[in-house]
Amino acid sequence: MSKVMVVDDEPFILMMIEDKLKKAKIDVVTLRDSGKAFEAIKKEGPDLVILDWMMPELSGIELCKMIRSDPAISHLPVFMLTAKGQDSDEQLGLQCGITRYITKPFSPKYLLELVQETLGNK
């Protein structure tokens, strides 16, 4: 079973994604504290990471850069699920190695499709 790790400081977002993915038989690990996310990713070894951009401790972008620069996990697909909807934001995100850039509000169904697609390709 594939494992997806979701990091977001908004509890109901985590709850939504967890409920949606779990129903599709995808294992979900959620985390609100971005400061602990990097270690958790390394520890949990997920197949895909979904990150919020704006988080108090560590931003999704910084976290992505850390993932990409760590050889052990640099291959991980990283989704950015964010309220930052500007084109320039998306460009910046993609430059940092984001696999998919999804803006809030989002359709959980669409997210699931993207996750399945990415995991299937893998």
């Binding site: 908004e10 109901f12 949606k20 930052k84 909807g85 809030k104 989002f106 959980p108 169904k109």
Partner: peptide, 27 residues
Amino acid sequence: VRSVSHEFRTPLSAIVGMTEMILNGDI
């Protein structure tokens, strides 16, 4: 404008996403 749109997106995510899930019978 960016702030407003940004700040609106998070609560809207709950409204849009959760409604969709309820309607889909995910919950």
